[in-house]
Design a protein around this nucleic acid. Sequence first.
DNA 1: GTCTGAGTTAAGAAATTGTTATGAGAAAGT
DNA 2: ACTTTCTCATAACAATTTCTTAACTCAGAC
Lengths: 223, 223
Amino acid sequence: MTNYSILIVDDEPDILQFLTYNLNKEGYKVYTAQNGEEGLKKTFTLEPSLVLMDVMMPIMDGIETCQLIRENKSITQPIICFLTSRGEDYSQIAGFQAGADDYVTKPIRPRLLISKVKSLLRRYTTVETKENSSSIKIDRDRYTIELKGKNINLPKKEFQLLDFLVSRPGKVFSRDQIMSYVWGTETIVGERTVDVHIRKIREKLGNDYIRTIKGVGYTYNEI
Amino acid sequence: MTNYSILIVDDEPDILQFLTYNLNKEGYKVYTAQNGEEGLKKTFTLEPSLVLMDVMMPIMDGIETCQLIRENKSITQPIICFLTSRGEDYSQIAGFQAGADDYVTKPIRPRLLISKVKSLLRRYTTVETKENSSSIKIDRDRYTIELKGKNINLPKKEFQLLDFLVSRPGKVFSRDQIMSYVWGTETIVGERTVDVHIRKIREKLGNDYIRTIKGVGYTYNEI
DNA sequence: GTCTGAGTTAAGAAATTGTTATGAGAAAGT
DNA sequence: ACTTTCTCATAACAATTTCTTAACTCAGAC
């Protein structure tokens, strides 16, 4: 299903096993480590998409491990999510400063964790293009788009629309489909509204990315 | 790895060697001085991030050295941590009055010292910017901010808010996230309150540092 | 030429954020 | 204990950005 890999770092074998089981069930490839040092090594060699890490650990704590991961510029930076005990206020502060992306508080509820993991992994969509190395990268966390290394800011509606098209490059979406995704089925907007937004997106990205299929709809172009 | 430098000031060569060895092993750049006078000179010329200093020393004791370091406004102030013998209660009080940040009691346990050093160095966040040399430095101990060499005083709420944003430059934080960090999840404040604080911070720092992402939140700008 | 669907533009509405003033309350100074 | 100063939250209003609509233009099909 997915080809995301997750590294879990915790000193309690029970938790490792529990999380491994639950995340495996969802189709993720799971690696484990029992302390910060081991976690650091495995992050560098396995380059997981996501690191779930306990804050309190022997040998090297989560905060430090996180800092060292962030300092290594030669790997693809994973998303880092801490496992903290409720009330560990300080760890949350230090955690963000160390470069963490999010937190889950123990005790861990499987359903909640999985939905958080999913949303964390969903944050970026990168569409690589075939020949040249121009790729588009969508960051749902910041509502920004990175195109050929440049960052482009899009207003919300334009962002959602582009995000929808990019979700299936090459697939043609009708205006109705676009409208029901971006505006929902409740609110109804005029016919030309979609066109205007398409125009504004083209204005910012260039004309080559969204192609019109007459009488059908629009598609994100695989250049 | 890290580029922190530490100056150790002690009149006992054994201790200097012992501490140098242990801190070197952790990747810190270590300098040494054998008395207060030498320590003061080296602090001014080397501008270390952290000064570990014995209280009892010939020629010039730690307290006096510390005061003189704190009086020199033209250097980047180091973190100062005293090494005291157990039971020297008086020197701790005097040390804090002189401007020390922390103390470690002898005999020194290496692991404990290292974790203390790490946590002391973690208190400061320096965000270096890319091209020009304008950097922001946040001192959580004194609630001050150093920007382009100028020191700026911020009230508590403004400080916490800026500190939060700076913790992940470029990351966009929603008003909800900001509120739960600065005000906690208990107290609820109006929607516009965050905006007003942002305005006040901009008033003091300039408009270029905090960027608004409409419909999403605010971010500390990597200039 | 006419028709149809899409592109374009501008203008006003709606949503969101910026700014200022005010008073309550906390902190600091005397 | 008193006054003064600073901080903070809020409301009201201004400014800005974003969204939607309508009217008009353009291109290709018939």
